[in-house]
Design a protein around this nucleic acid. Structure first.
Lengths: 232, 232
DNA sequence: TTAACGTGTCTTGTATACAATATTTCATTA
DNA sequence: TAATGAAATATTGTATACAAGACACGTTAA
């Protein structure tokens, strides 16, 4: 009896997650055509669950589907990406502000623990680990907002922006800067200064999105290999 | 210059919109089981497009689907609803703040026009018309934010909260109060005072969500619809 | 040579058939 | 009578078959 997954996912959900993972990690870079038959064959299922997975991803905004034409991984323009970071910054700020008021002692302890873990990764100069721990850190804040809907929205968008954020961590000193900002955020939460938490978080996220130079180079790296209709 | 729906919708998208409409207007009240065959029969199509529509709605959060069991219209708890209004308030505030900086003369003109239209509906004491014009008013602000992604997110959530907002307009004096608040908002935008716009909008939306008494009675009214397809 | 057009192939959209699981019903027993 | 359990039924999940629009390519004409 090694039933690990208590809620058996539908096939299409598993597929959706797998395809999303591939999009988000760049296996399917922007511009990739998602052929239903091809995907079906590669997953060893029929087209039906694949279609359902694609529809799911489409309504989450991860892919574009045009009627009677293959779904494609959209080429995000720098402008669009900046817009998304702008919204992300505000969601994070909101989470932080609420968290400053509502966080519980044990949650604060967990947040500080996540922060310390980031420090280790920074000292080790390991961007990949830092990236993962950074996710945990931010998720703790989302949860401490004690607004479940907000936390879901923040996580969804955070996930969508993953590939871009990930590459940015390799920019010079970004990891260090990020960690210092985290420290400020934690301090402000401890003080219970909601406005300060919000401002710091907003700046923290905007910093990732605002520098168009970095951003565009990120996009270049991403869109590399596809030189049609250069979406920047 | 708006595009005149150049892309013909897939059948499942039409179905999705229709079903969403029925959920949002209370034809399918919370708790309703959405039987695929039944829906297929009533729309005169096979189960396939119905399923695709349901999956779409599910990933938009409008319905719950549990594996091997019918999709249902979720009964939203007052807490959940409050959470959603809290997020809506912040999104609106953000739109307003950006709009104060970025709105263009012709957009300001359109906004003021929408505002004047609301006034007519208020004077006529017509909540249904007011409700529709109110949507236009808010949408103008979303668009004036010049952040397309934000505007999309705001519109999606606004739409999801429609039924609850709609019923609230019938609360005593709500229409009048709402209109006064709109006036403040427009004034602050004209002044270009982003912070004031944000605060006013936040209060405007929170007012709709924060009063638990009204909210819960709204929910009651909604959840009482377990009798057959009566519809609002 | 190039542009236009039509045919053929490919891919998506929908219907139907079948498989697997949840629900209901009804008989049986304490 | 209430609880239990197993068969019957109903409903979802997946596969396959067919229909219809999009794309590719080759042919023809200027």
């Amino acid at each position: 009896m090694e039933e690990i997954n208590s809620t058996p996912l539908r096939r299409s959900e598993q597929l959706g997650e797998e395809i999303e993972e591939r999009i988000v990690t760049g296996v399917y870079p922007p511009g990739t055509r998602l052929d239903e038959q091809e995907l079906a064959a590669s997953f060893g299922v029929s087209r039906t669950p694949v279609r359902e997975a694609l529809i799911q991803l489409a309504s989450a905004g991860l892919i574009d589907v045009r009627p009677r034409r293959s779904a494609i991984v959209p080429e995000m323009s720098a402008e669009r990406l900046y817009e998304m970071f702008e919204v992300m910054a505000e969601l994070e700020a909101m989470c932080g502000q609420l968290a400053a008021r509502r966080i519980r002692p044990e949650e604060l302890e967990q947040l500080q623990e996540a922060h310390r873990a980031c420090e280790v990764a920074r000292d080790a100069g390991d961007p990949d680990t830092y990236y993962q721990l950074n996710e945990v850190f931010h998720r703790r804040i989302y949860e401490a907002s004690h607004n479940g809907f907000l936390a879901e929205q923040a996580m969804a968008l955070h996930r969508r922006l993953r590939p871009y954020r990930r590459l940015q961590l390799r920019v010079r000193n970004r990891m260090s800067t990020s960690f210092s900002e985290h420290a400020e955020i934690v301090a402000a939460i401890v003080e219970g200064d909601g406005a300060k938490v919000a401002d710091t978080l907003r700046a923290h996220v905007v910093m990732q999105g605002e520098r168009f130079t970095d951003l565009v180079s990120t996009l270049r790296e991403f869109n590399a290999g596809d030189n049609t209709s250069g979406g920047i």
